[in-house]
């Protein structure tokens, strides 16, 4: 019997290793897998590369992981926010690396990894500082910049409901990077607000099919740090 449910967040992240690339879902606070991140802090993995749209808020979730000194490098589009003081301080002190990537390019680089595409050309960032050193190609009279896939060793994602096969649905704008991060990691770990029986999710409405998911843990009332 396929059963992707695990008992708790600690069990879910037990094998995250030092130096891993971890994809972390969420846009601001919406979709942020706070409890999985807190379990990862307890677990102790360090020297991590984290991919997230932002760089943490206040001192919970990703910001707490950064504050604990576990993150070597952030790959994100928008590290600056009114509550991102943990990252900003570490960055100022030169204690954390940053790769700033346009938001849609992060999404598509993850998609490429998940879809078996070896990279792609995009018009985004052509002629800007973020395209420096990258291959440029003229296609149909427009200039495009080459971007390579971002593959995760692990993905930590928040969804609304999941069944034991790992089928998922999301809620409102908390969906954001969840579906593509589930595709792009070798091991995808999802916290859901509600476990459901197989068949409870309408097959027409399943957003992430379980093939992209390895572990599901139920966290009924996740903390949202917006």
């Amino acid at each position: 019997m396929v059963n992707k449910f695990v008992d708790n967040a600690h069990e879910a992240v037990v094998d995250v290793f030092d130096g891993a690339t971890v994809l972390v879902g969420g846009f601001g606070g919406a979709g942020h897998p706070t409890e999985l991140l807190h379990a990862l802090i307890d677990q102790g993995a360090t020297d991590l590369t984290i991919v997230n749209n932002n760089a943490g808020n206040f001192e919970v979730g990703l910001a707490a992981l950064i504050k604990a000194g576990r993150v070597r490098k952030m790959i994100c589009s928008f590290p600056k926010a009114s509550h991102s003081h943990v990252f900003n301080q570490m960055y100022k002190e030169g204690r954390i690396e940053l790769e700033c990537v346009p938001q849609g390019t992060i999404a598509e680089r993850l998609h490429a990894a998940g879809a078996g595409i070896g990279g792609f050309f995009t018009r985004t960032s052509y002629g800007t500082d973020l395209a420096k050193g990258k291959e440029v190609r003229e296609i149909d009279g427009e200039f495009y910049v080459f971007e390579s896939p971002i593959r995760g060793d692990f993905a930590l994602v928040l969804a609304q409901k999941g069944d034991r096969w790992g089928n998922l649905v999301y809620r409102k704008a908390a969906r954001n990077f969840g579906p593509v991060m589930c595709m792009a990691a070798k091991t995808t770990i999802v916290q859901v607000k509600q476990k459901v029986e197989l068949g409870e999710l309408d097959p027409e409405n399943i957003v992430t099919p379980g093939i992209f998911v390895n572990r599901v843990v139920e966290i009924p009332n996740p903390q949202i740090s917006s």
Partner: peptide, 12 residues
């Protein structure tokens, strides 16, 4: 820290 968000995607 540089922070671009979706601005470059929208621009093109």
């Amino acid at each position: 820290p540089p922070a671009v968000g979706g601005a470059m995607d929208l621009a093109v």
